[in-house]
Design a protein around this nucleic acid. Structure first.
Lengths: 352, 352
DNA sequence: GTGAAAGCGCTAACAC
DNA sequence: GTGTTAGCGCTTTCAC
């Protein structure tokens, strides 16, 4: 497939220079605000550029400077509203600083078993990251990290591409991160479940190779153990893909095999919504027969009759802080990695 | 804010050429598959490029060719799941053809009154579109069009930037479009409402300056009139921002002023979810006291106890066809504009 | 079949 | 204070 159609020629810096009767260098100085031209000339050049509808080519600029003045935001799955809410705030924050946020949908994390080793997923994430790097992105915001992404992170570090990890992270990775205390968040949920009398509690943790997921799963299980309980499902059954479908399918099986289950603690809201679907199908009343909980508190976790009990997280702040941290790195700050733990809060609604 | 940190030098085509002992031109031929090198040389160059971890600079390529091999997808509001579902399929379709989809969140359409003339919104959309153009995007997919965006569309046409309109469109605009028959979709919903005995029906249409919204509003009203009925709200009250909050606020007012309302027909699902929130607040039982309907059938319109009656639309196909049409244009096809009307279907669930 | 060289539009030395 | 110039990394004519 070859691109044929020719584009109308853009107005270039040379065009402006010619009309103004100056060199392109002066135009560059005048427009970027660099010293080197008189105020008077600067004004004249600005006026002409404006009149000609001149807009600098970010591509030429990028080739010259090595930076595109854009931030790449890589979302595992753009149809997970939790991440798009983070994205919206990141866009706003970056815009204030003159950066464009270019969002990519990586298409990950939806496997039903949540149990793959992440090889294929890592390859796909790396490919998308490179697509941004080859366009000279100024920096990358990553949300979909698995343990298997460590080589990619190392590659990014070697090539000095600024990176911030949002929410999820690869442990031990020396780049900035902003998120919540996953273990504590899960513990809060589990304590609530136990306090309200649940005893046959299933844990549906998320992806086995995701640090956030394992931290949550551990938080669930530790809390159960501390109360002298066990997950109602076997250890190998703790994992699920990060998707509604996965939550649905896992719950569906589980319900078929065990009628005593009285609660399902899910690693995130999306999984919990799938469990709710399964409850409806199986005719299990929520919360009377079975309690269901999530983590994230994405906006669609509470709509009209749907009122999921979950953990609320400062999404707006995650996006905003993430951009701030990244911009510091883009500006050359090379201090030690920042790990910012934001507050979370249990939100008891109608499902538990 | 200045970008300071220097990036590790990338492996360039010249590096490959030097190691292979050939000119950079030969490397270019070898790697792009162009004729001009022997099969043997081609293989040798490929091997060296591989070994060196060479990746072509898309920026340099872009500067030379005028195209970045990327498609810009501009979403009015990235937290509207309906559009992100379209986005996911567009990404998949474009990836098959070697194009990267870069998604932007424009941040539009959420005004509560849905009544602004779109001046500010048009300016914001134009700014985002230019951010893509200045990066030499191969083409643009637009989803958030209002009547006031016509100047932007004209600018794009003048500068030969291929464009496809998804779902929404500016009437009379000679660019490709793929969507549904909005008027008919609204009529289907309204007929259902009337057939099930509703008589005091409120219409909450969406943005006044959106063609899709007005087509739907007209579909609602025409169908009411044909049945000898009127909207239960005044004409000026027909409009709402494309958001849950807006749906909530409008319904909240409406419920306070009129207790006979027995149905709310909404221009899209998001608005309908807001209305459902308001019903819950006001203690109105759905569907017994009041019926609520949407259009779009985004995935979160039906979760567990939440089962919105709406119109389902082939989202996957919209994204895929949109990419196909755009790629044709990028490849230089200049045939007459294509308008592709995809099938919709009323989906009766629990709210009406 | 292969290489030299021009140039895409811009920035940043450096010279004047 | 202003202009000249050398690239950034690639594609593409044009010679050989």
């Amino acid at each position: 497939m070859v691109e044929r159609r020719e584009r109308a020629r853009r107005t270039t810096m040379n065009d402006v220079a010619r009309v103004a009767g100056v060199s392109s260098a002066s135009v560059s100085y005048a427009l970027t605000g660099a010293p080197g031209v008189s105020d008077e000339l600067r004004e004249r050049i600005r006026a002409i550029a404006n009149e000609l509808g001149y807009r600098p080519s970010l591509v030429a600029q990028g080739l010259k400077t090595g930076r595109a003045r854009s931030i790449g935001l890589l979302l595992a799955d753009i149809s997970n509203p939790f991440y798009t809410e983070i994205a919206a705030s990141a866009v706003a924050a970056a815009g204030d600083e003159g950066y464009e946020v270019l969002i990519s949908h990586v298409g990950l994390g939806q496997d039903t078993d949540g149990d793959d080793d992440g090889e294929r997923e890592a390859a796909r994430l790396a490919a998308v990251a490179r697509a941004h790097i080859d366009r000279y992105t100024s920096g990358l915001m990553l949300t979909s990290l698995l343990a298997s992404d460590r080589p990619l992170l190392e590659e990014l570090r070697r090539t000095h591409v600024p990176v911030v990890q949002l929410y999820r992270r690869v442990p031990g990775e020396p780049s900035d991160w902003v998120g919540i205390d996953d273990h504590a968040a899960a513990a809060d949920v589990m304590n609530h479940l136990i306090a309200t009398g649940r005893r046959h509690i299933v844990v549906l943790g998320g992806q086995r190779s995701s640090y956030a997921s394992t931290a949550r799963a551990t938080g669930f299980v530790d809390t159960l153990r501390a109360a002298g309980l066990q997950p109602a499902n076997p250890d190998q059954g703790l994992w699920a893909g990060i998707s509604r479908r996965s939550g649905y399918e896992r719950a569906h099986e589980l319900f078929a095999g065990d009628t005593r289950i009285d609660a399902v603690a899910c690693g995130n809201d999306l999984i919990a919504l799938g469990v709710l679907d399964a409850c409806r199908d199986a005719g299990r009343a929520v919360p009377d027969d079975v309690a269901v909980t999530g983590i994230d508190d994405m906006s669609f976790a509470s709509v009209g009759p749907l009122q999921l009990t979950t953990v609320t997280v400062p999404r707006e702040q995650i996006g905003r802080r993430g951009v701030q941290l990244l911009l510091r790195r883009i500006d050359g700050n090379s201090g030690p990695p920042v790990e910012e733990v934001l507050p979370h809060r249990l939100r008891v609604r109608d499902t538990a």
